[in-house]
Every structure is written in structure tokens, then in C-alpha cells.
Amino acid sequence: MQNIESHATNLVDVVYGNERLQFDDPSENWFEATKIYRTSMAWDAPGVAALLRSETLQKIATHASKRFDDLPLISLPDPLNSNVTLDEVIENRRSIERFQGSSVSLEQLSTVLQKSYGLVERPEGPRRPIPSGGALYPLDLFVIVNKVDSLEKGIYHFDPYRKGLTKLGEYSEQGFMEIMLQEESVQGFSFSVVVSASFWRSRFKYGHRSYRFVFLEAGHVMQNMILLATALNINSRPYGGFIDDELMKMIGGYNGVDDAPIYTLVAGI
């Protein structure tokens, strides 16, 4: 019993980095701020009532995505169908540590993007293939193209409503590898999908709780992408660790507070 207590004490030291616990821990403060209490629901989720009363807000909320209408649109081909069963995909999925440097087809990339977070027309209105808090869809997918047939190397934004890509600029492959902190593992990749969050799209309705919803949604999208990649015989690996400010600077357009990259898929053959 004494050994267990000693081990637990050591773990506390490792987690908090001090012999004494701190009473103003940022991680604990964040988790506390995102809790919902029955007695304070009116201000824990301030936008719920406002959204129900406003048809304008409801209309805006159904068209969640960054738009780059001033840039040429590259239309994506229809997604491919796979004969692989879900059981097979789940069994075969692996986080790959090396890529061979081969290219993937534009049809394969289109399938990963459209079937993971593309538009699905339903009687109740446009939706996506994943659950989203309040159907607000606060995420955007940016694609770092390295070796995709029929696409120039560069940085693209996926437009789910127009089913296409808009090219935003260029990037350095070596710089991207350094940003991902796994240069050997990333080398030779075909494409990467940077999952980015516009936190305000969810926060106006759900307050601080929205951050939980946003991160959960990113997980749903990533799971879709890695399973789709597996079904298409594309190797992949999700990354949660990267140099935030350098990735934001590479893609551009972020302020790091209202919107930021939160999750990254690296894929290839």
C-alpha cells in the first residue's frame, strides 16, 4: 500500500511539475469553464434561445464554411465507391510511420474529403456525414497537396457546398515536415488534411461548452478520413502535435483565437 501511495505522489509531481499542487491550473480551469450546471444554463449556453427565435441566425447557421469565392474553383470528381466492409476497414486500419512517395488519384482525395465532411442533402436541410453540436459544423478542411494526380502542389481549401477546392498558395515540403515534428514519418506523403476550427461558429450558441463539441467533432471527421483512406488502400496517420503558429502562418488567414488548426491527417502510399 505504501508503494502505491508513493507512486501516486510521483505521478502528481510529473503531471503538475511541482511538489505542491497549484490552485490556478489552466487545464483544470478550462475544464471547469466548460461544465454545464442546471442553475446556470441560461448563460452557460447563451445563444440557444436566440437561435430558436431568429430565422436569420438559423439560415446563417446552415451555411457553415469559409468561402473563397474570389479564387478559381477546381471541381472535385464524384467520390469512389468501395466494396470493402466496415469490419475489414476497422481491422486493417493502421497508423503508418513511413510513406513510399507515390501519388494518389484526385478521385481518391475527393472521396476522403467529400465522404468525411462533404455536404449531404436531407429533408431537414443540408448536413454532413458526422454528428455536430447543433448542426453548426464549425470545422474547415485545408489540404496540403504534395503528390496528387492532376493537382498542382500547394495549399487548398475544401468547399463542401461547391464540391471543389480553391488553391490558396504554395508551401515548402521541408518546412511542413518540420512543422509536424516528425520529418522522417511525414516524408514522401501524398497529401495532408488540416482540420481547422472556427470556434465562434459554435460558441455563439453553446458558450464555453462549445469547445468540447468542436474537439469531439474533429475526432468524428478524423475517424471518417482514416477509415476512408484505409478502404482506398491509402496509408494514413493522424497527428495532434505540431507547431501551431508555424502551421497557421503557412496556411494563412488565422488569428489563433477565433480560429486555429486543431488536428492533422497525413496520408500517402
Rank of each mutant, 00 (worst) to 15 (best):
S95T: 14
E246P: 04
V195W: 00
Q187F: 05
Q108I: 03
L165D: 04
A50E: 12
V48W: 00
L86A: 09
M222L: 08
S236W: 01
R212P: 00
I144Y: 00
H157S: 10
E5I: 03
L228V: 04
F31Q: 12
K147A: 12
N83P: 00
S103Q: 06
F68S: 11
A218V: 01
D24M: 06
F31W: 04
A50M: 05
D87A: 08
I130T: 15
Y263T: 07
S110G: 02
S102M: 05
R67L: 09
G188A: 09
L52N: 14
L216V: 11
Q108A: 11
F189L: 12
R201A: 06
G256F: 08
S40R: 10
F213S: 11
E217Q: 13
Y254W: 04
F215Q: 10
N224R: 13
A50C: 04
S82C: 07
K115M: 11
P26S: 15
M248Y: 00
L51Q: 09
R94I: 07
D259I: 05
S192K: 06
S196R: 02
N233C: 08
Q100I: 05
S172A: 12
L57H: 02
T111P: 01
N3G: 03
W200T: 14
P26Y: 05
N10V: 08
I36R: 14
P77K: 15
F158H: 12
E183N: 12
L119A: 08
G125E: 14
L216C: 08
E91W: 04
P261K: 10
A135R: 09
N146F: 00
V15H: 08
E217L: 06
G253V: 10
G175N: 07
P261D: 07
P46A: 06
L51T: 04
T230N: 07
P261N: 08
H7T: 13
G133H: 02
D245V: 13
L76A: 01
T56C: 06
M41V: 15
G268L: 02
I155A: 07
G241W: 07
W30C: 06
I36V: 13
G133V: 01
P131R: 13
F176D: 07
E107Q: 13
D258G: 15
S190E: 11
K59E: 09
Y239I: 08
L21C: 03
N146C: 10
V12C: 10
V221I: 15
A61H: 04
G253H: 07
N146T: 09
L11K: 15
E246G: 14
V214Y: 00
F68E: 07
V214R: 01
Y16K: 08
S27W: 03
R127W: 04
E88F: 01
V195Q: 03
D13R: 07
E152K: 07
Y161E: 15
S172H: 09
R93Q: 09
K66D: 06
V89W: 00
V214F: 01
V143I: 07
E97D: 11
S132W: 01
S185I: 03
Q2S: 10
N146P: 02
S95M: 14
K115T: 05
I4Y: 08
P160W: 02
R212Q: 05
N29L: 08
E178H: 05
G125S: 13
H7Q: 10
D258V: 13
E55N: 08
L265F: 02
Q223S: 09
A64I: 03
L11M: 15
I269Y: 03
V48P: 00
W200F: 08
Y156H: 06
